[in-house]
Design a protein around this nucleic acid. Structure first.
Lengths: 97, 97
DNA sequence: TGAATACATAGTGAAATAACTATGTAGCGC
DNA sequence: GCGCTACATAGTTATTTCACTATGTATTCA
Protein backbone atom coordinates (compact mmCIF):
# COMPACT_ATOMS: atom_id res chain seq x y z
CA UNK A 1 0.00 0.00 0.00
CA UNK A 2 2.62 2.54 1.06
CA UNK A 3 5.20 0.79 -1.11
CA UNK A 4 2.92 1.28 -4.08
CA UNK A 5 3.48 5.00 -3.72
CA UNK A 6 7.27 4.75 -3.90
CA UNK A 7 7.68 1.75 -6.17
CA UNK A 8 6.56 2.91 -9.59
CA UNK A 9 7.64 -0.38 -11.17
CA UNK A 10 5.29 -2.24 -8.92
CA UNK A 11 2.53 0.20 -9.82
CA UNK A 12 3.11 -0.51 -13.50
CA UNK A 13 2.98 -4.25 -12.90
CA UNK A 14 -0.18 -4.05 -10.87
CA UNK A 15 -1.88 -1.68 -13.30
CA UNK A 16 -1.14 -4.10 -16.13
CA UNK A 17 -2.57 -6.93 -14.10
CA UNK A 18 -5.65 -4.90 -13.17
CA UNK A 19 -6.34 -3.95 -16.77
CA UNK A 20 -6.80 -7.65 -17.47
CA UNK A 21 -9.50 -7.73 -14.82
CA UNK A 22 -11.15 -4.41 -15.71
CA UNK A 23 -13.34 -5.71 -18.52
CA UNK A 24 -17.00 -6.73 -18.25
CA UNK A 25 -16.64 -10.16 -19.80
CA UNK A 26 -13.31 -10.97 -18.20
CA UNK A 27 -14.59 -10.07 -14.75
CA UNK A 28 -17.54 -12.35 -15.25
CA UNK A 29 -15.29 -15.16 -16.45
CA UNK A 30 -13.11 -14.81 -13.38
CA UNK A 31 -16.15 -14.70 -11.13
CA UNK A 32 -17.58 -17.90 -12.56
CA UNK A 33 -14.22 -19.64 -12.37
CA UNK A 34 -14.11 -18.80 -8.67
CA UNK A 35 -16.69 -21.51 -8.23
CA UNK A 36 -15.27 -24.29 -10.35
CA UNK A 37 -13.32 -25.37 -13.39
CA UNK A 38 -15.35 -24.98 -16.60
CA UNK A 39 -15.14 -25.67 -20.31
CA UNK A 40 -15.34 -22.89 -22.90
CA UNK A 41 -18.80 -24.00 -23.91
CA UNK A 42 -20.01 -23.88 -20.33
CA UNK A 43 -18.62 -20.39 -19.87
CA UNK A 44 -20.08 -19.29 -23.17
CA UNK A 45 -23.53 -20.51 -22.17
CA UNK A 46 -23.36 -19.05 -18.70
CA UNK A 47 -22.46 -15.61 -20.02
CA UNK A 48 -24.57 -15.58 -23.17
CA UNK A 49 -21.78 -14.16 -25.28
CA UNK A 50 -20.51 -15.39 -28.70
CA UNK A 51 -17.97 -18.18 -28.39
CA UNK A 52 -15.30 -16.34 -30.39
CA UNK A 53 -15.46 -13.44 -27.97
CA UNK A 54 -15.14 -15.75 -24.98
CA UNK A 55 -12.14 -17.51 -26.50
CA UNK A 56 -10.59 -14.16 -27.27
CA UNK A 57 -10.99 -12.96 -23.69
CA UNK A 58 -9.77 -16.27 -22.33
CA UNK A 59 -6.65 -15.87 -24.38
CA UNK A 60 -5.97 -12.52 -22.76
CA UNK A 61 -6.51 -14.01 -19.32
CA UNK A 62 -4.24 -16.92 -20.23
CA UNK A 63 -1.49 -14.71 -21.61
CA UNK A 64 -1.45 -12.66 -18.42
CA UNK A 65 -1.54 -15.82 -16.35
CA UNK A 66 -4.82 -15.20 -14.59
CA UNK A 67 -6.28 -18.48 -15.78
CA UNK A 68 -4.88 -21.79 -16.95
CA UNK A 69 -6.13 -24.48 -19.31
CA UNK A 70 -6.16 -28.20 -19.11
CA UNK A 71 -6.96 -29.88 -22.40
CA UNK A 72 -8.61 -33.27 -22.05
CA UNK A 73 -10.00 -34.90 -25.14
CA UNK A 74 -12.31 -32.56 -26.95
CA UNK A 75 -12.58 -30.12 -24.10
CA UNK A 76 -10.53 -27.27 -22.69
CA UNK A 77 -11.02 -26.88 -18.96
CA UNK A 78 -10.32 -23.44 -17.59
CA UNK A 79 -9.54 -22.58 -13.99
CA UNK A 80 -7.98 -19.75 -12.00
CA UNK A 81 -4.20 -19.67 -12.13
CA UNK A 82 -3.71 -17.63 -8.97
CA UNK A 83 -5.10 -18.21 -5.55
CA UNK A 84 -5.33 -14.51 -4.73
CA UNK A 85 -7.88 -13.97 -7.48
CA UNK A 86 -10.78 -15.22 -5.41
CA UNK A 87 -10.22 -12.59 -2.78
CA UNK A 88 -9.72 -9.92 -5.41
CA UNK A 89 -12.90 -10.78 -7.31
CA UNK A 90 -14.78 -10.87 -4.06
CA UNK A 91 -13.42 -7.47 -3.06
CA UNK A 92 -14.16 -6.00 -6.47
CA UNK A 93 -17.68 -7.38 -6.38
CA UNK A 94 -18.38 -5.39 -3.27
CA UNK A 95 -17.47 -2.18 -5.08
CA UNK A 96 -20.59 -2.48 -7.23
CA UNK A 97 -22.42 0.04 -5.05
CA UNK B 1 -19.39 -12.71 -6.86
CA UNK B 2 -21.99 -15.12 -8.20
CA UNK B 3 -24.26 -12.21 -9.12
CA UNK B 4 -21.45 -10.76 -11.19
CA UNK B 5 -21.80 -13.74 -13.49
CA UNK B 6 -25.51 -13.19 -14.14
CA UNK B 7 -25.71 -9.43 -13.90
CA UNK B 8 -23.92 -8.11 -16.97
CA UNK B 9 -24.93 -4.52 -16.16
CA UNK B 10 -23.16 -4.76 -12.85
CA UNK B 11 -20.11 -6.19 -14.62
CA UNK B 12 -20.08 -3.19 -16.94
CA UNK B 13 -20.32 -0.78 -14.02
CA UNK B 14 -17.57 -2.50 -12.10
CA UNK B 15 -15.30 -2.78 -15.12
CA UNK B 16 -15.68 0.95 -15.72
CA UNK B 17 -14.84 1.62 -12.12
CA UNK B 18 -11.86 -0.71 -12.21
CA UNK B 19 -10.46 0.91 -15.33
CA UNK B 20 -10.15 4.11 -13.34
CA UNK B 21 -7.97 2.23 -10.86
CA UNK B 22 -5.96 0.24 -13.40
CA UNK B 23 -3.39 2.89 -14.21
CA UNK B 24 0.09 3.23 -12.69
CA UNK B 25 -0.24 6.84 -11.63
CA UNK B 26 -3.84 6.62 -10.53
CA UNK B 27 -3.14 3.58 -8.36
CA UNK B 28 -0.31 5.43 -6.70
CA UNK B 29 -2.49 8.47 -6.13
CA UNK B 30 -5.15 6.34 -4.50
CA UNK B 31 -2.56 4.57 -2.40
CA UNK B 32 -1.12 7.79 -1.09
CA UNK B 33 -4.57 9.22 -0.40
CA UNK B 34 -5.27 6.16 1.74
CA UNK B 35 -2.99 7.72 4.29
CA UNK B 36 -4.19 11.30 4.31
CA UNK B 37 -5.63 14.25 2.47
CA UNK B 38 -3.04 15.92 0.22
CA UNK B 39 -2.62 18.89 -2.09
CA UNK B 40 -1.79 18.51 -5.77
CA UNK B 41 1.71 19.76 -5.16
CA UNK B 42 2.28 17.23 -2.40
CA UNK B 43 1.04 14.40 -4.61
CA UNK B 44 3.15 15.67 -7.50
CA UNK B 45 6.28 15.66 -5.36
CA UNK B 46 5.58 12.31 -3.81
CA UNK B 47 5.16 10.67 -7.19
CA UNK B 48 7.80 12.56 -9.14
CA UNK B 49 5.53 13.10 -12.11
CA UNK B 50 4.80 16.35 -14.01
CA UNK B 51 2.05 18.42 -12.40
CA UNK B 52 -0.08 18.55 -15.55
CA UNK B 53 -0.16 14.77 -15.67
CA UNK B 54 -1.15 14.54 -12.02
CA UNK B 55 -3.96 17.08 -12.49
CA UNK B 56 -5.11 15.17 -15.54
CA UNK B 57 -5.28 11.89 -13.65
CA UNK B 58 -6.93 13.56 -10.68
CA UNK B 59 -9.61 14.82 -13.00
CA UNK B 60 -10.34 11.28 -14.15
CA UNK B 61 -10.53 10.10 -10.55
CA UNK B 62 -12.80 13.05 -9.71
CA UNK B 63 -15.09 12.47 -12.68
CA UNK B 64 -15.55 8.84 -11.69
CA UNK B 65 -16.04 9.86 -8.07
CA UNK B 66 -13.10 8.00 -6.61
CA UNK B 67 -11.68 11.14 -5.07
CA UNK B 68 -13.06 14.49 -3.99
CA UNK B 69 -11.57 17.96 -3.72
CA UNK B 70 -11.82 20.63 -1.12
CA UNK B 71 -10.55 23.99 -2.28
CA UNK B 72 -9.20 26.18 0.50
CA UNK B 73 -7.37 29.32 -0.43
CA UNK B 74 -4.64 28.62 -2.90
CA UNK B 75 -4.74 24.89 -2.39
CA UNK B 76 -6.84 21.98 -3.58
CA UNK B 77 -6.99 19.20 -1.03
CA UNK B 78 -7.70 15.77 -2.42
CA UNK B 79 -9.06 12.81 -0.49
CA UNK B 80 -10.75 9.48 -1.16
CA UNK B 81 -14.44 9.76 -1.98
CA UNK B 82 -15.35 6.20 -1.11
CA UNK B 83 -14.65 4.29 2.03
CA UNK B 84 -14.32 0.94 0.23
CA UNK B 85 -11.29 2.19 -1.67
CA UNK B 86 -8.89 1.54 1.17
CA UNK B 87 -9.73 -2.12 1.26
CA UNK B 88 -9.58 -2.34 -2.51
CA UNK B 89 -6.19 -0.67 -2.76
CA UNK B 90 -4.92 -2.88 0.01
CA UNK B 91 -6.21 -5.99 -1.74
CA UNK B 92 -4.78 -4.90 -5.07
CA UNK B 93 -1.43 -4.16 -3.47
CA UNK B 94 -1.16 -7.75 -2.38
CA UNK B 95 -1.51 -8.91 -5.98
CA UNK B 96 1.91 -7.48 -6.80
CA UNK B 97 3.51 -10.92 -6.54
C1' DT C 1 -2.10 46.27 -9.89
C1' DG C 2 1.12 43.11 -10.85
C1' DA C 3 3.91 39.14 -9.94
C1' DA C 4 4.18 34.59 -8.06
C1' DT C 5 2.21 30.28 -6.70
C1' DA C 6 -1.04 26.43 -7.27
C1' DC C 7 -3.76 24.15 -10.10
C1' DA C 8 -6.62 23.13 -14.46
C1' DT C 9 -7.48 22.52 -19.25
C1' DA C 10 -6.81 22.27 -24.41
C1' DG C 11 -4.89 20.24 -28.22
C1' DT C 12 -2.21 16.71 -30.55
C1' DG C 13 -0.63 12.34 -32.23
C1' DA C 14 0.55 7.65 -31.06
C1' DA C 15 -0.61 3.35 -29.14
C1' DA C 16 -3.66 0.10 -26.82
C1' DT C 17 -8.05 -2.06 -26.64
C1' DA C 18 -12.74 -2.87 -28.47
C1' DA C 19 -16.22 -5.59 -30.94
C1' DC C 20 -17.26 -8.28 -34.88
C1' DT C 21 -17.02 -11.53 -38.85
C1' DA C 22 -14.95 -15.09 -40.91
C1' DT C 23 -12.25 -18.92 -41.07
C1' DG C 24 -8.98 -22.51 -39.20
C1' DT C 25 -7.61 -26.66 -36.46
C1' DA C 26 -7.91 -30.71 -33.54
C1' DG C 27 -10.06 -34.72 -31.50
C1' DC C 28 -13.79 -38.12 -31.70
C1' DG C 29 -17.40 -41.42 -33.57
C1' DC C 30 -19.03 -43.70 -37.51
C1' DG D 1 -11.87 -40.60 -44.55
C1' DC D 2 -16.16 -37.68 -43.30
C1' DG D 3 -18.61 -34.97 -40.51
C1' DC D 4 -19.49 -33.10 -36.09
C1' DT D 5 -18.29 -30.78 -31.92
C1' DA D 6 -15.24 -27.78 -29.29
C1' DC D 7 -12.24 -24.37 -29.41
C1' DA D 8 -8.75 -20.94 -31.43
C1' DT D 9 -7.10 -17.39 -34.41
C1' DA D 10 -6.94 -13.78 -38.16
C1' DG D 11 -8.17 -9.56 -39.90
C1' DT D 12 -10.59 -5.22 -39.81
C1' DT D 13 -12.26 -0.89 -38.19
C1' DA D 14 -13.76 2.03 -34.38
C1' DT D 15 -13.02 3.79 -29.97
C1' DT D 16 -10.47 4.65 -25.85
C1' DT D 17 -6.69 5.82 -23.51
C1' DC D 18 -1.94 7.71 -23.35
C1' DA D 19 1.74 11.01 -22.73
C1' DC D 20 3.23 15.47 -23.68
C1' DT D 21 3.44 20.52 -24.52
C1' DA D 22 1.51 24.68 -24.09
C1' DT D 23 -1.42 27.80 -22.15
C1' DG D 24 -5.18 29.46 -19.04
C1' DT D 25 -7.35 30.71 -14.43
C1' DA D 26 -7.65 31.85 -9.64
C1' DT D 27 -5.85 33.30 -5.29
C1' DT D 28 -2.62 35.56 -2.42
C1' DC D 29 0.56 39.03 -1.20
C1' DA D 30 3.68 42.86 -1.90
Amino acid sequence: MADLVRDSKKAVRIAYFMRAVAHPIRIRVLAILCERELTVTEITEALGVPQAIVSQQLKILRTRELVKVSRRGLYAYYSLARSDLKKLVCCIGKCGK
